[in-house]
């Protein structure tokens, strides 16, 4: 099992990762979720040994690996753009790691075929990587990573460059493959759907620090910071104060049950936590409606700030509306 303790990485004077601590158990799938530039790739590269940490340790099963060279770590890393070997064919790519382990030709061959089979690419052995589609390349990269049976598999935005439909299908397939292989997996992405579909544990990374970590449900339902909330789809934020069982909003007080927060606070909603209601206390004007496949996202300008609301149909810009927040869907954050 992987243990990361107080890990910091600098590029020159720039701090890229700061005091990261993280743990991955046997057969666990951990997903690092964060916007671009948050240091996700650097984290993977540091664990792989491609970058040197300024402070902190990377250890496996209790033994410190911080000084172990890349090739001795037995970690697998699937690069964002796959980094397939252009001068080798498919089987040459997949068998590479097995050859490095010094297996006999037969073992290399059969295990590489097994790995290819696992990703559904039997029969592609002699193909050149440039003849493959994006999805096929991705699967070759995956097969190449799992073939030598690494003790930790790391995936860097594995679906980054693929179209949505293919991505959704591959996420499903990847889930099955990872479960069947049963190895510890660390996987970074900026896409929440991927993260929540695959992970046993989600780690939110922002500006090189861990913002929050927990099970997908915990993280999804209870972001602990405004930034985390923002990243996870909370789009409307309002300042408020607490008075006994009542939260006092600028537009009036609303009863609230649950753990008593300290004041002042900030309350957040996702678009589906706000509703149009002719009797709503919040008054605003529609500034735009955006089509979102199965619904519309309506931006409303109010004196409390801009609010995003989910709606069944579009509303014309300039329409006056009234809004009611759903306190059951509200997220209470310290201000």
């Amino acid at each position: 099992m992987l243990d990361i303790n107080g890990l910091s990485v600098h590029y020159g004077d720039t701090r890229v990762l700061s005091d990261i601590s993280l743990r991955i158990d046997q057969a666990q799938i951990v997903c690092v979720l964060g916007p671009s530039g948050s240091g996700k790739s650097t984290l993977l590269r540091t664990i792989a040994g491609l970058e040197t940490p300024t402070t902190g340790t990377v250890s496996w099963d209790g033994s410190d690996m911080t000084k172990t060279p890349v090739h001795k770590r037995r970690f697998g890393l699937m690069f964002q753009d796959h980094a397939l070997f252009a001068h080798r064919d498919v089987i040459g790519n997949v068998s590479f790691g097995l050859r490095m382990l010094g297996h006999s030709q037969d073992v290399v061959e059969s295990r590489a075929r097994t790995a290819l089979d696992r990703v559904g690419l039997s029969g592609f052995e002699q193909r050149h990587v440039h003849e493959l589609s994006g999805g096929e390349q991705q699967r070759v990269a995956l097969a190449r990573s799992i073939a030598p049976e690494p003790r930790l598999l790391m995936l860097d935005e594995p679906f980054g460059s693929l179209d949505r439909e293919l991505r959704e299908r591959l996420v499903g397939e990847l889930h099955d493959v990872l479960r069947s292989v049963g190895i510890a997996t660390l996987f970074v992405t900026h896409d929440q759907d991927e993260a929540f579909a695959l992970a046993d544990k989600v780690v939110l990374l922002r500006d090189g620090t861990v913002e929050q970590q927990g099970t997908p449900q915990e993280v999804w339902l209870h972001p602990e910071t405004e930034a985390a909330a923002h990243f996870l789809g909370f789009s409307t934020f309002v300042d408020a104060t607490v008075d006994n069982d009542v939260i006092k909003f600028p537009w009036g007080s609303q009863p609230f049950s649950g753990p008593r927060p300290t004041h002042p606070i900030r309350v957040a909603w996702r678009p589906d936590g706000l509703h149009f209601n002719p009797e709503g206390l919040i008054i605003g004007v529609v500034s735009a409606s955006t089509f979102r496949r199965d619904h519309f996202l309506v931006s409303v300008t109010t004196i409390h700030g801009t609010m995003s609301i989910r709606s069944g149909e579009p509303l014309a810009a300039g329409t006056a509306v009234q809004i009611t927040p759903d306190m059951g869907a509200a997220l209470i954050l310290p201000a």
Partner: peptide
């Protein structure tokens, strides 16, 4: 040569001299 190719080889267990032999040399 994409430096990532060398990195990929290293991660797959190729020691540095082997990386050179497997990537730089054939290309």
């Amino acid at each position: 040569i994409d430096p990532r190719q060398r990195e990929a080889a290293a991660v797959l267990g190729a020691r540095p001299s082997r990386v050179w032999r497997e990537i730089d040399f054939p290309i």
